[in-house]
Amino acid sequence: MSTRLFLTLACLTLLAGCGNSGVWGWYVIDPTTPTGMSNIRFLLNGFGATIVLSLTAAALSMTLGLMVALPGMSTNRWIRMPSRIYIEFIRAIPLLPMLFWVFYGLPVVLQSMGITLRIDAFWGAVITLAISDSAFTAEIYRSGIQSIARGQTEAAKTIGLTYSQTMRYVILPQAIRRILPPLANQFIYIVKMSAFASVIGMQELTRRANELVVTEYRPLEIYTLLILEYLVLVLIISFFVRWLERKMGADESR
């Protein structure tokens, strides 16, 4: 009910711009004019960077998250503790300050240790997103793995499997189907948070929209298109994940 009301209002708001009320000025991204077309091209060209940035950060975050999650489930508290501290600490840092710290601060720290490394906007954003997100993926892995009954690990022990064999052949294949939906959620979150990369100058979707707004003075239309760009990205991801879940679910009930 409220969804329909919201959609109606949203459509009315957009349609309002089609009249001559003067509130909306769609000419700025009108594909029938050369300027509009080149503006659209400029904006859409950010897709590549946003996608590559999100995918790289997500892949790193998922790997890092697993590396943090596994020792976090040890029965030995000295193995468990660093993992817990990492999660609590990283989870507490807001993304934007962390991005500034990595981009402006980390090279200075490295310099003082005798390492000269220039971190460009892309890698600054990748590192920040991956580390920040890994605290959350680690918790997703942990809850997924711990949801697999203890009897599975015990049975694996009695047939002589090592810890890593047990994880690889028994636990993770079962946990993955429970981990996948929240992990997909986290990926969507990364795609959206990648917008922060714009503030350190990375030419992704949001940065391009900002730059166009400065020259065209039509924030309403340009940011509306920007939001739609993210919406399309996220819907594609959702669709893909649904498909993946169905595929795995079908395989399970064989």
Partner: peptide, 25 residues
């Protein structure tokens, strides 16, 4: 060891349940 709750590996076939230990361990 045989458990009260069987603890078979539900994602594997019966044959795979039986070959996992001999092959990997």
């Amino acid at each position: 060891m045989v458990f009260q709750q069987f603890n078979l590996f539900p994602h594997l076939t019966i044959l795979e349940n039986l070959t996992l230990g001999p092959m990997k361990a």
